[in-house]
């Protein structure tokens, strides 16, 4: 039994490295932030103690959250964030599935072409993607010009909710398609063939066989994209309306423009609570397929 003790000790030491890094770089700062948002203002921290609208208290108080959540602006921000997250995740699944299905079941050349295209957004920095979207879809952009020649009126979606959604879908597509595609590759070929032989159409195969068997990857993609979209910054900072804003951008404004670090940190906590709910869903999803430990 000496060996298993040694193994446990070595295992713990090795695993401790990333856990410790995560603790110092994320958990500790997050905990500091939580205390700050509950009214504990550290005097030795100028970034915190020089903020305006500070709530200072020796006992934990939810005052900051109360003020924040009762503001109609913040409410609008949160509503916008949830709307964008919902639509973005749905569209990521829809487009991601279209691409993954084309690669898996599309005619040979087509599948290969799609396969070499869909990875591109992964390699383009997000700030560039957002900028490219403005040049294409913006008012007086390329699409505007094209439709002008055809004689169709165009109102640019880029500074509205659709602009944010489009940008976020674009940047999350490679990840989603890769994961969904891997799930499809693992599908038993015979089952699909059998259904096809018995005369089932593509849609009913999709609905009755492919989607149920590919549920886990679908949930994983939904959860990861959801968390990432919730806290996203670059795309909603460059695209979308000036107000209301996604919470990621609102946080930055609270910290920078309004000089209210406490509000910024509290917003981060609220977003984290939402992300944690999605994360719990993910953990439940993978614990059904894979057991670690």
């Amino acid at each position: 039994m000496k060996n298993s003790w040694r193994e446990a000790l070595i295992g713990l030491c090795l695993a401790a490295l990333p856990v410790a890094a995560m603790f110092v770089l994320v958990v500790l700062p997050a905990f500091e932030g939580l205390r700050f948002s509950l009214g504990y203002v550290p005097g030795d921290n100028p970034a915190y103690s020089t903020g305006s609208h500070l709530v200072t208290s020796s006992t934990p108080t939810l005052e900051v959250y109360r003020t924040l959540l009762s503001s109609p602006f913040v409410q609008a921000d949160l509503r916008l964030t949830l709307t964008v997250t919902l639509f973005t995740v749905l569209l990521i699944l829809l487009v991601g599935y279209s691409l993954a299905l084309l690669v898996r079941f599309g005619p040979g050349r087509l599948g290969a072409a799609v396969r070499s295209l869909y990875l591109i957004p992964m390699f383009v920095p997000v700030v560039i993607a957002a900028y490219a979207f403005i040049t294409l879809y913006g008012s007086r952009g390329w699409l505007d010009a094209l439709l002008h020649h055809v004689g169709i009126g165009y109102r640019s979606p880029i500074y509205g909710i659709p602009g944010i959604v489009m940008g976020l879908v674009w940047s999350h597509l490679p990840f989603a398609t890769l994961l969904l595609g891997s799930g499809l590759d693992a599908l038993p070929e015979e089952q699909v063939e059998a259904a096809r032989d018995s005369g089932a159409g593509f849609l009913s195969i999709l609905w009755r066989i492919i989607l149920p068997l590919n549920l886990t990857p679908t949930m994983i993609v939904a959860a990861f994209s959801g968390i990432s979209v919730l806290g996203s910054y670059t795309v909603p900072a460059l695209l979308g309306p000036n107000a209301p804003q996604m919470v990621g951008v609102a946080m930055e404004q609270y910290f920078g423009a309004y000089r209210q670090p406490q509000g910024a940190v509290a917003l981060a906590m609220i977003t984290f609570a939402l992300a944690a709910a999605i994360g719990a869903l993910y953990v439940w999803g993978i614990s059904r397929t894979r057991r670690h430990g």
Binding site: G11, V19, L25, A30, G248
Partner: peptide, 28 residues
């Protein structure tokens, strides 16, 4: 390797990772 808390640590990494970035950057 087998060691206590393996699954917990593995998933805890994700939990930490889902904290909104900007909130972390301010505190960091």
């Amino acid at each position: 390797l087998n060691f206590p808390g393996k699954r917990f640590f593995f998933v805890a990494l994700l939990a930490a990772d889902s904290f909104p970035r900007f909130g972390i950057y301010i505190s960091v």
